[in-house]
Every structure is written in structure tokens, then in C-alpha cells.
Design a protein around this nucleic acid. Structure first.
Lengths: 254, 254
DNA sequence: GCTACACCCG
DNA sequence: CGGGTGTAGC
């Protein structure tokens, strides 16, 4: 089976591209972020027509997460410890695999209130895992973590050193999450540098090759053990009306 | 030769549709209205590539008129008696034919200040013709006049009787303009009702057939005498991203 | 740059 | 409804 995550930067603005990618990729499970739509307006029908069950958790203008699954979706949990922002959505796909679609706060600028919120959000996510999950059971955390964990995850690390996406404090928060018991599926199959998953819309970042790897598929060891392949669909950052993020995918021999 | 007028409701939003229509229609002269763009941002290159000379007169958010011509453009005049609003543009196309792209004020609501301005604008246009033109020389006034002159120019005349587009005072102002010495080229070839040129974006006006004929090709007798055919490209109101206006065209055996 | 949003306008 | 404007967020 194929699992994937994609920050689509508005599911309504991106619908045609997402559907075409879906038809080409045929993933079994997809986590979406920044859907930017309230649940009543989520364009569910084209996904249902393609055989997916949906769990959606949206809000008015920002954020918004969703899970598409060809396996039966159950035990849906919306929000991290009952927060109102639509950044966390969990569901069980099929018998055992628990999947979380995650959109970590960007952090604004280093030192801001938003920055504090981002670092705390990592702590709260780790606390949630400690209390509600176990590294021994099949769990997939997929989403936009807004952190490039290591220098090889940044095309020009020096230029990004003080940014919210690569600041040492954000990387430390990400590492603490990993240390709970998660495996970075991309790094099982790619040494790097890259593959990158995000290029700023501004400053010609994509043509200049100024990418970061901030979208991740993180899984517990029983899931990671059966990951045979993983990658990034970089071509989705090209052409007309791309998201600023590319999809990240992994093949699981479950 | 073919002459045409089209209120495009933003040349930037409509560019692809206008170019495709141009390639299919191959008009020699086109008057555009509601280009909604300052001259520096007018997308001139695709028109030049197709063999047109351009005269443009635009402003920031509203209005904006342009003339495209395969014949040499000369003697360009911008604005009606030096007004700032981009509603009038005149040029000579080729040796003798003078062409004006005209965007008459809508008029807001009957009785408003905008309504007064609309009626006066017609007076000023007539005064301009009296002082600067002659019914004996080749002149084409093409544009959105925001007036349906007669009941046969409105699909549901009773419903529109008190509107700014069909109010008796607006029709009288239009008639006075015609009486200077202009011929309505569409009415040379169509008895009506219709053909209509505008359907409100709101209230499902197009599917309900609720159209008005408010865009006109008005010409002096020497031009009208060689008009062999005229019509409205109603299909341009269909499909994706249509303008609310359809192009009006005429064939001149000049 | 490319999303949203609110507002103005026909 | 579908253009324009501006502002905010990333």
C-alpha cells in the first residue's frame, strides 16, 4: 500500500491537481494539510467517487486537515488535546494502523508569540503520544511539521539557520518527538541532501533550488519495518497553480 | 473586413478567452471596454504577435477602453472632452475610418448622481460628435452604451422598464445620439427581439434568457452602407470564465 | 506568490 | 456572480 501526505494550500484552489495526482498515484491513505475550508464545504464527492472514505477537520480561513483512506476509517479524533485550531486529525485506517494528519504551527518569527506556540505545540504532540499511543503499535504521523530536522534537509542551510523552519530550538523540539519512538520514512531510503518538500512561492525559490524538507512521514518501528520505498513527488511543485508543498509518499508492505 | 466590440470585464482575467475568440474570428478592428488595467500593465504582446496595433486608455480599477487594429492606427484621442475616466478612446484605422471605443457610465440607480452623470455623458458625446465629426465621413462608435434602445432589445421589457439600462430617459439620450446621424448596424440585419449582448452574472440571468442589447456598433451612413452582415457571438457568454457581455461584430465591405 | 478574507461595483 | 481593491498569513 501507498501512504502519502500533502500540504495542498487550499483544497478548493487545488482540487483538480489533487484529483489528477490521486488518479496517477493511487495511494491508499492520504493526509492533507491546509485544506482551508470548513467541513460543510469540503469537496468530498470527487474523493468518495474514487473510493475513499474521508475524515475532515477544517476551519474558516486557515489550517484544516483531512485523511482520505481506501481502508475503513474509524475512531476519528479531531484536534490535539481539544484545541480549536484545525491542526490535528487522527483516525484508524483498517484493522490496526492509526494515522494522524498533522499541521504544526509555522512559528511566525523567532521569538514571537507564534514561535512560542509552535515549540509548545511539539511538546503537546509528544505528550499526546506518550499518553495515547505506543511505539510498539502501528502508528503513522504524516504532515507538515514546519521543521527541517538536519542540514541535509535544507538546500542552503546557512541562509536558513535563523529561520523558524530550521532554528535549533525547532529542530530540538522535532528531535524530542522523534525520540519518543518514530522513524523518518524518507531517511530510510534517501541519504540526502533532500529530497525537499517545500519551496517558498516568493523569490523564485523553486527555480533557484532553494528547498527545504519540512513535510514528513513519521512512523513507529512496526510500520517502518515494512517500508520498502519512499519519495517526494517534486513534479507537483511545477506547472500551473502548484501548492508550495510537494506530496511525500511511502510504500508499506503491510 | 470585420469590426467588433466587446466589454471584456477585465482584459487580464479574460485574456485567454479573448485571444481564442480573436484567432477564430480574425476581426480587423476590435473595440474593448472595461479592460480594468493601467496602460503599463495592458497585456499588449499577445495582440501584437497576432498582427494588431493597439491604442489603450486605462485606469486603476474600473473602466478602461482599447482599440486593436490590423490597419495602421493614427490620431489617437484619449478621453471625452478631457475627462479623467477611461471611457472614450478614438483612433483612425487606415486611411479614413475613425473608430471610437465607448464605455458609457452605467448610471447606478435611477435618480442617483451616477444616473445624472450617465445622461450628461450622452449629451457630451453628442456635443463631441457635433464639433469633431460629420455624418458624411466614415465613423464607427463601438462599445457598451449601457442602454437597450427599444423593447425588442430587452428579453423581458416590463421587468426592466425602470432600470438604468432601459429607462425612458436613457433611451431618449441614446436616441438623440443616434439622431445626430448614426446607424445601428445590428438592426440593419436583425429585426429582433434580440440579439442580446449582456446577461447579468446574478440571478441565473443567462440560463433564464434574461438578456439585453446594450452593446452597439453605431456608424455613419457611408460605413453603414457597406455593412453586409452583423451579429453577436452569444457563445462567448458560455463556458468557463465568460464576461457578462458577448462580442458584437459586423462585416464591412469597405 | 499565492492563498484566504472583507468590501465595492454592476 | 465575478470582476476589482486592500490586508493578513506563510
Amino acid at each position: 500500500m501507498i501512504v502519502a501526505t500533502w500540504n495542498v494550500n487550499s483544497i478548493r484552489a487545488r482540487l483538480e491537481r489533487v484529483l489528477q495526482w490521486l488518479d496517477r498515484t493511487e495511494p491508499d491513505i492520504v493526509c492533507l494539510q491546509e485544506t482551508k475550508v470548513v467541513d460543510a464545504d469540503f469537496p468530498a464527492d470527487p474523493f468518495r467517487e474514487r473510493g475513499y472514505e474521508l475524515a475532515v477537520f477544517g476551519q474558516k480561513a486557515y489550517n484544516g486537515v483531512a485523511i482520505l483512506s481506501r481502508l475503513p476509517l474509524q475512531d476519528v479524533r479531531r484536534g490535539l488535546d481539544g484545541e480549536q485550531e484545525a491542526r490535528f486529525l487522527q483516525a484508524r485506517c483498517g484493522d490496526r494502523l492509526v494515522v494522524c494528519s498533522v499541521y504544526v504551527p509555522n512559528g511566525g518569527t523567532v521569538g514571537s508569540e507564534a514561535w512560542d506556540y509552535k515549540l509548545r505545540w511539539f511538546d503537546r504532540l509528544r505528550a499526546y503520544l506518550e499518553r495515547a499511543a505506543s511505539p510498539e503499535t502501528p502508528l503513522l504521523l504524516a504532515g507538515d511539521f514546519n521543521v527541517a530536522p538536519e542540514p541535509r534537509d535544507v538546500a542552503f542551510p546557512e541562509a536558513w539557520a535563523d529561520s523558524v523552519l530550521f532554528h535549533e530550538a525547532a529542530r530540538a523540539a522535532f528531535r524530542k518527538l522523534i525520540d519518543w519512538g518514530l522513524v523518518d520514512l524518507i531517511r530510510l531510503h534517501h541519504e540526502g541532501p533532500g529530497p525537499f518538500t517545500w519551496w517558498d512561492y516568493r523569490n523564485l525559490a523553486f527555480p533557484r533550488g532553494d528547498g527545504l524538507r519540512i513535510d514528513h512521514l513519521l512512523a513507529t518501528p512496526p510500520v517502518a519495518a515494512c517500508c520498502t520505498e519512499a519519495g517526494v513527488h517534486r513534479e507537483e511543485r511545477k506547472g500551473k497553480k502548484p501548492s508550495d508543498h510537494a506530496p511525500v509518499w511511502a510504500r508499506l508492505n503491510l
